[in-house]
Simulated assay, not measured.
Amino acid sequence: MFWKSFRHNLTVMVFSILLQIPIGMLLATFLDAGGKKFNIFKIIWFLPYLMSSVAIAFLFIYALATNGGIISSLATLINGKRTTVDLLGTSPNALFTVIGVMAWQFTPFYMVYFIAGYGNIDTAIYEAAIIDGATRGQYIRHIAIPLLGPIFKTACTMSLIGSLKYFDMIWNMTQGGPSGSTELMATYMYKLSFQQFNMGYGSCVAAGMFVLITAIALLFNKVFKVKEDY
């Protein structure tokens, strides 16, 4: 069960990086291009990150409920007859549904992170690119993104470490179910320690989490080296 939970953590880690970082960067690019007139979008899009993970978990439990939930209601409307869509009660849908909810909450953090990265790029570089005939897209692709390399690396590292420690949201949404299909190392450790009162094995799982998270973070930093002097 520990290694099954670890595989689930790796799945969450990979999809967290693939979803949260690119979407956050796209949103930041949109807001940077719009300037102050898009400040309202900054506020609206950042709201999910300000909400409690527990509150978001209960919000989506009701939204994804098979009886009266948004998805089931839409499916019923489209099909013209009662249709139930159980995203949290079937495997592997439950794991990917939780990953999507996590991305909805934490993508705004990376959006703000990339906005700060864009703010650190000297405007003279953009002006010089425009004078040389570069379009906005060419500037972003060939100049801004390479300059944001260190930001990408740091964001990916934070997403990697954070995704290996998820607990509160997934516990309140599925408690590791159905049949362990959303079990993570943290939820497994909690069940061992505070439900089965097997403190020794729970402590061992916690130590294993520490070793694996540290090893993956060090390996990531070793493989994905980014040149920071431009």
Rank of each mutant, 00 (worst) to 15 (best):
W3M: 08
T154H: 03
H142N: 12
G69F: 06
D132P: 12
M158A: 14
W171F: 14
A206D: 04
D32T: 15
I17H: 09
L212A: 08
E228W: 07
A215E: 01
N198E: 10
N221K: 13
N120Q: 14
N79W: 09
P108E: 01
K222W: 12
G34Q: 03
L26G: 14
F2M: 06
N172F: 03
F46H: 07
I115Y: 00
T174G: 02
K37W: 13
F220E: 02
S72W: 02
K165T: 10
L212I: 15
I115F: 01
W171P: 01
T83S: 05
L19A: 00
V98G: 00
I145M: 09
S91T: 13
P22I: 10
N221F: 08
V223S: 05
M173E: 01
N120I: 11
M111H: 01
M1S: 08
I71E: 01
T135L: 06
I21N: 07
T157F: 06
C156S: 15
A206K: 06
N79C: 09
A33S: 08
A155G: 07
W171G: 04
P146M: 13
S163N: 06
N198C: 02
V101Q: 05
Y139A: 10
V101S: 07
I56M: 04
M158C: 12
S72L: 08
S72P: 04
I99A: 00
P92W: 01
F220T: 05
S159I: 11
I115T: 09
G162W: 10
F15K: 00
S159D: 05
L148K: 09
G100M: 10
I140G: 05
M189I: 08
